[in-house]
Amino acid sequence: GPREVTMKKGDILTLLNSTNKDWWKVEVNDRQGFVPAAYVKKLDSGTGKELVLALYDYQ
């Protein structure tokens, strides 16, 4: 199956793709996968990378 990404509340993840309104593709610890968009919030990183903050645990 697809590689699952797990996250804990407060984690910072790299946002790869947010074109789908329900599932965003993120990368964390060299793993890529989809997380519910409602579970993360975009951060203003000030760099080229888009980052998101995990609002809830997800696994």
Rank of each mutant, 00 (worst) to 15 (best):
G10E: 02
T6H: 13
A38Y: 09
L15H: 00
T19A: 10
F34R: 03
V5Q: 04
D22Y: 15
Q59S: 15
Y39N: 06
G48K: 08
K41R: 10
A37I: 04
E27H: 05
G10Q: 01
L15P: 00
Y39A: 13
L15E: 00
E50H: 10
I12S: 02
D44G: 14
N17G: 06
A54F: 03
G46V: 13
K9Y: 04
A54Y: 02
T6I: 14
V35G: 01
Y39P: 02
M7G: 01
Q32P: 09
M7E: 00
E27W: 09
W23H: 02
M7K: 00
P36R: 04
L51E: 08
L51F: 09
E27L: 10
T6Q: 12
T14S: 07
T14Q: 09
S18M: 09
K41T: 11
D57K: 03
A38T: 10
G1N: 12
Q32V: 15
K25A: 08
E50L: 12
A54Q: 01
S45C: 15
L43W: 06
P36K: 04
V40K: 00
L53Q: 11
G10P: 01
Q59I: 12
D22Q: 10
T19K: 09
S18Q: 09
P2N: 13
S18E: 11
A54H: 01
Q59M: 12
N29L: 07
N29V: 05
V35L: 03
M7I: 10
P2H: 14
A38F: 09
I12Y: 05
V40P: 03
I12L: 07
Y56W: 09
N17E: 15
L51T: 08
Y39F: 13
N20Y: 07
F34Y: 14
L13T: 01
V52I: 06
V52P: 00
K41S: 09
V26W: 01
L55K: 04
E27N: 05
K25P: 01
E4G: 15
T14I: 15
V5H: 04
S45M: 12
L15Q: 00
N17T: 06
G1T: 13
L13G: 07
K42G: 04
W24P: 00
A38W: 12
V35I: 08
G10N: 04
G48M: 08
N29G: 14
D30P: 02
G48A: 10
K21W: 05
D30Y: 06
L53A: 05
V28H: 13
S18Y: 06
V40L: 15
G10T: 01
G48W: 05
V26Y: 00
N20F: 06
Q59W: 10
G46H: 13
T19R: 10
D30Q: 09
L55T: 04
L15S: 01
G48L: 08
K49A: 11
R31F: 11
